[in-house]
Design a protein around this nucleic acid. Structure first.
Lengths: 238, 238
DNA sequence: TGTCAAGATATTGTAGACAATTTTCGTATA
DNA sequence: TATACGAAAATTGTCTACAATATCTTGACA
C-alpha cells in the first residue's frame, strides 16, 4: 500500500524518519528489544544508511533506542532506576512549564487545549489505545510549546517520549496513562492563573501516572520491522 | 588469548573530537559565532567528515553549536531567553542531584570532592582562568556522577557546558563563576546529611552565579580554527 | 564609482563502496 | 549427541565521490 515517502524535504529527512520510528516505539508497534537494522529501515524509507544512522543517533540521545557497538541499534528497555529518574526529572521540568504558563494563556490558547482534550476523550471512547497514548503525551508537549521556550519544548518532548516507552514496559496494559479529567483540571487552573495550585495539580497528575506505573514488566510478540514501518509510513507527510 | 584492549580510542572517535571542541568552546578559545567547517576540523584530527559531522551533531544537541542548513556549524550564541531557561532548568536539575546525594556519601567520596575543590583553588591562585572555569563546572558534574544515575549525569554535563558558554557571553570577564567557598559549603552540607539545607545551599550557589551573570554581551577577536585546535590536540589522549 | 549578474569556488548533503566486526551455520571430532 | 572450530553471511564503522547549495569573485553596465 504505502509507497509514500512524500519527502516534504525542507526539514531534514532524518528527522522525518526519527518521527516515524518514535511513534512506532511509543505505540509499542516496535516493542523494547526489537532490532533496528540500518539497511532494512533505509529500504523502507528509500533513504541511504547515512540518513537512517542520523535518525537512530537522534533517537539514541533521546533514550528511545540503544546503540551497541558493532551490533546495531535496538529499541531501548529502560531499567527501573532509569524509569524512576526519568519521571523525577519530568516532574521537575513540567513544574517549570506550568508555573511559567499560569495566568499567561490567552483565550484562544485555552480553547486549543480544550479541543485537544476533547480529541483525547474521543480517542478514549473509540478504544483506540495507541492514539490515546499519543494524544495524552501531546497534551504535555503542547503545554511546553506554549511557553515559547525552545528548551522547555525540546526536553518535554524528550521526557514525554521516554515516559511513554517506560509506561509501555512497566504499567498495566489497560491503564491509559493520561487521565482526561486531570488534563481538564490542569487547564482550569492555568486559566484561573493560580500558579501554585496549577503546579500542584500537575505534580499530582504526574504522580498519579507514576503510581499507576511501575508494576511489572510484560512482553509482546515481535512484529516484523518491515511490516510495522509500512503501516507507519503514512504518517510521514505531516 | 586476546590482550586487554583498553580501547580508549576505539570507544568512539567522534566522542573524543566532541570533547576537544567542547573544551575549546567552553574556554572561549572558539568564541561564539566561530565557524566550524567540517573538513578543516577533520584535517586537524585526521578524521573523515563523517566522524566530524557526528561530533558536531552531538554538540548541536547539547546546544553548544548551531547548525544552519547548507551553511555549516558555528559556535552557538544563546539568546538571553535561552540563557534564562538554561539556568532555570539547571537549578531544578541540581536540586535533584543534591537532594539525592545528601547523607549518602562515603568518606572517600567526600575526600574526593574536597580534593577537587583544592584543585580549583590552586587554579584560581595560579590565575589560569580557563582551567578555573573548567574545574568549576567539573565539580558539579562530579556530584552528578556520584548519584550513579546516567540521566542525571548526562543532563548535568549538558547544562553545565551550556551554562559555561552562556557565562562566557554574558558575565563579567573577571568573575570566575564558581566560588570555591560555596563549593566547600555544599560539601559540608552533603556530609552532614541535612538534605533540605544542602539543596538550599546549592540553589543559593547557582542563584549567585546567575546574579553575577547576565550583564551584557562582549566579544573577543576570532582566532584561526586551525591554530586553536592544534593547541587542543594534546588533550586527545586523556 | 556603485550595482548587479554570472561564473568560480567552497562547503555541506547524500549515496554507495569497502573494511572491520559480529553472528550464524555447517561440519568434523570426541 | 554434544561441542568446538571455522567459513560464510549479515551488519555496522568509516571513507570517498558526487550532487546540491551557499558564498565569493569578477567584470560588464549604468
Amino acid at each position: 500500500m504505502s509507497e509514500g515517502t512524500v519527502d516534504t524535504s525542507k526539514s531534514k529527512r532524518s528527522e522525518s524518519i526519527a518521527k516515524v520510528l518514535r511513534n512506532a516505539i511509543i505505540e509499542q508497534a516496535l516493542p523494547s528489544g526489537s532490532r533496528l537494522p540500518e539497511d532494512t529501515i533505509g529500504e523502507q524509507f528509500k533513504a541511504s544508511r547515512t540518513i537512517v544512522r542520523e535518525a537512530l543517533s537522534q533517537l539514541a540521545t533521546e533514550g528511545l533506542v540503544e546503540h551497541r557497538r558493532n551490533r546495531g541499534a535496538v529499541v531501548a528497555e529502560p531499567s527501573w532506576e532509569e524509569a524512576r529518574d526519568t519521571f523525577e526529572l519530568r516532574i521537575a521540568l513540567e513544574k517549570i512549564v506550568v508555573a511559567r504558563l499560569a495566568g499567561t494563556l490567552g483565550s484562544s490558547e485555552i480553547a486549543a487545549l480544550r479541543a485537544h482534550v476533547a480529541e483525547e476523550e474521543a480517542a478514549l471512547e473509540s478504544g483506540d489505545d495507541a492514539r490515546s497514548i499519543r494524544l495524552g503525551g501531546e497534551f504535555h508537549v503542547t503545554l511546553a510549546e506554549m511557553t515559547g521556550s525552545q528548551f522547555l519544548l525540546r526536553y518535554t518532548q524528550e521526557f514525554t517520549s521516554r515516559c511513554s516507552l517506560i509506561l509501555s514496559l512497566y504499567s498495566r496494559p489497560v491503564s491509559v496513562e493520561c487521565g482526561v479529567a486531570e488534563h481538564r483540571a490542569i487547564i482550569d487552573n492555568l486559566a484561573d492563573g493560580s500558579s501554585d495550585q496549577a503546579v500542584e495539580v500537575m505534580v499530582q497528575h504526574l504522580g498519579d501516572i507514576v503510581e499507576r506505573a511501575l508494576i511489572k514488566p510484560r512482553r509482546r510478540p515481535n512484529h516484523s520491522i518491515a511490516n510495522v514501518l509500512a503501516n507507519y509510513n503514512e504518517l510521514l507527510d505531516e
